[in-house]
């Protein structure tokens, strides 16, 4: 019981802290979660983190909330999911409730925007670190299919505005076909 309660508390405060620092859109939560849940707590592994990101992205609602639900579920089942939902929505709820009283002043404040600009630059660095290390993991495996998919997906998203849900379907299908072909080849050899 005691260790269960401890796990709930760790989950709550980890998610709370992460939500309070997610600037600039849902995907920023992925490097923060990776640091906390993959590297520090070791509750999930690197591949799992990417799977959870894919599910969070292709489900309805805020990506950050969805990702928290998934991590919470892995950590402690349905109670874990509920705990992380609460921990994700409390920080923005408090912050927005306070700011809403004087939001015009907040928006136009020179010091606030200086801090925000500085933090956004760091967010860019955090994402750069994540993208480079994850892309490197793919390149290291030297599998042509995966490398080609990484490059093609990027080009299609960045330059042709491909719909993300469509990309997820195509990528999943290619992964499945890749497996089928490999299996058939193996059966043919034996």
């Amino acid at each position: 019981m005691n260790s269960k309660l401890k796990r709930y508390l760790i989950l709550f405060f980890s998610t709370f802290k992460i939500s309070a620092f997610t600037f600039g859109g849902g995907f920023v939560i992925i490097p923060l979660m990776r640091k906390q849940f993959v590297h520090k707590l070791k509750w999930i592994d690197d591949d799992e983190m990417l799977d959870l990101a894919a599910i969070a992205q292709s489900s309805p609602g805020a990506i950050a909330v969805n990702a928290s639900i998934l991590v919470g579920y892995k950590a402690a089942g349905v109670p874990g999911a509920i705990i992380s939902i609460l921990a994700t929505i409390i920080p923005p709820f408090i912050i927005i409730s306070i700011i809403s009283g004087f939001y015009i002043a907040f928006r136009d404040n020179k010091y606030v925007s200086l801090i925000m600009e500085g933090m956004l630059v760091a967010v860019a660095a955090v994402l750069a670190d994540l993208v480079i290390s994850m892309a490197w993991d793919i390149l290291k495996k030297r599998r042509a299919v995966e490398i080609a998919m990484l490059i093609l997906s990027f080009i299609l998203l960045e330059f042709f505005n491909l719909n993300i849900i469509l990309l997820i379907f195509i990528a999943g299908f290619i992964g499945f076909m890749d497996y089928k072909v490999a299996k058939r080849r193996q059966n043919g050899l034996s």
């Binding site: 859109g25 990417l50 750069a128 793919i138 995966e146 997906s153 990027f154 990309l167």
Partner: peptide
């Protein structure tokens, strides 16, 4: 079979995060 689908998704998800990164770089710089 589920593993294979997920394996296919991973490079695509990295590409998605990469595009999010580029738009934040644009906003920041």
């Amino acid at each position: 079979s589920v593993q294979s689908v997920l394996k296919g998704l991973r490079p695509a998800v990295i590409a998605m995060i990469a595009t999010a990164w580029i738009s934040i770089m644009r906003m920041a710089f």
